[in-house]
């Protein structure tokens, strides 16, 4: 007879090593190049903003969960990811209270109110950003060019100094920027959005470890390129300026708020691309990545329902 206790549980009895926790921390790792780029271009203040946002997100998650008597889940890393992503969408000049408030809003209202991880319909980081943009529009659109960019910036008109590249395009200002500098991230913009190089390194890392599905960034970026060509914008400028790459690889790929079906994900990416270019070209804002993704988040349940894959051997039900 068995003289010891054994576990009796349902099969399968083996599990893959990848856990939610590990995925979230890998996303954090994938964003480190962008964090370094932001510190390189915008100085130590960038790090401060990031830390404020991350700590606020994590503490808010814990506080709300304690208040609601739910298990505290900050260890899963999802709140840290939200805090980090939010920080990377902020201008380098914001007062430190903004990342604190934005991250708290993102977690409390964007996520916990719906039941926490897995249940929020909208990307929490983008909810936090939308909240800050609506509440402090001036602070959220005060830009600063990296000190290192001033040498090649001098040749530009004065108007350049307080704007982003997309802002300039919106105003109709002709901009002549060296694409290499843009690619490296040596231009004005939000903390983590300027360096395409750093973001691509992180994005490729996520793709390589199959943490994100290629369909979303490819659908998104591909659509932006096509649309740019169609409406007569410079596609390279559209790709490198603004938050497109950050959005396409790190926000539009958020699991919870995007479709689970392969076809749904492709459509999601394409939809984000269409909306982004519509807003940039014809909308009131110079940039539309955040709102595009939020709008497509809303469509996610529908996309899932409309793109249910045909099952192996599926037999159509009668009637």
């Amino acid at each position: 007879m068995l003289e010891t206790e054994v576990v009796v549980s349902a099969s399968p009895h083996i599990r893959q090593g990848v856990t939610t926790e590990r995925i979230m921390w890998m996303v954090v790792i994938s964003l480190l190049p962008a964090v370094f780029a932001s510190i390189t271009f915008f100085g130590g203040r960038a790090l401060l903003i990031i830390l404020c946002s991350v700590f606020s997100a994590v503490l808010t998650e814990a506080a709300v969960e304690i208040l609601l008597k739910r298990p505290v889940t900050v260890k899963d890393g999802s709140a840290a990811v939200t805090g980090l992503l939010l920080a990377l969408t902020l201008p380098p000049t914001v007062p430190l209270i903004l990342p604190v408030l934005g991250a708290a809003f993102a977690i409390a209202i964007g996520k916990q109110i719906f039941g926490g991880l897995g249940f929020n319909p909208l990307n929490p980081a983008l909810i936090g950003r939308a909240f800050l943009l609506a509440s402090w529009p001036d602070l959220m659109t005060t830009w600063k060019w990296p000190a290192a960019s001033l040498t090649w910036l001098e040749s530009q008109a004065d108007a350049v100094a307080g704007a982003t590249v997309l802002g300039l395009i919106k105003e109709g200002t002709t901009v002549q920027l060296p694409f290499l500098q843009m690619f490296l991230g040596n231009m004005s913009g939000s903390l983590g959005e300027t360096s395409a190089l750093a973001l691509l390194v992180g994005g490729l890392f996520l793709l390589a470890y199959q943490i994100i599905d290629w369909r979303i960034p490819v659908g998104y970026l591909g659509t932006v390129i096509l649309m740019a060509l169609l409406v007569g914008e410079n596609p390279l400028l559209q790709l490198l300026a603004g938050g497109l790459i950050l959005g396409a690889f790190f926000m539009a790929t958020d699991y919870v708020t995007t479709p689970v079906t392969p076809k749904g994900r492709l459509i999601f990416g394409i939809g984000c691309g269409l909306l982004t270019m519509l807003i940039r070209k014809y909308g009131g804002f110079p940039e539309g990545v955040g709102y595009s993704i939020l709008l497509m988040n809303v469509a996610t349940p529908l996309l899932d329902r409309w793109t249910i894959p045909k099952r192996f051997g599926e037999v159509k039900a009668n009637g």
Binding site: T20, L117, G118, R311
Partner: peptide
């Protein structure tokens, strides 16, 4: 934990 909608199960389901 909760479903985080990562879609890994969708990627592997042979059916």
């Amino acid at each position: 934990g909760p479903c985080i909608r990562c879609g890994k199960c969708v990627d592997v389901c042979p059916y």
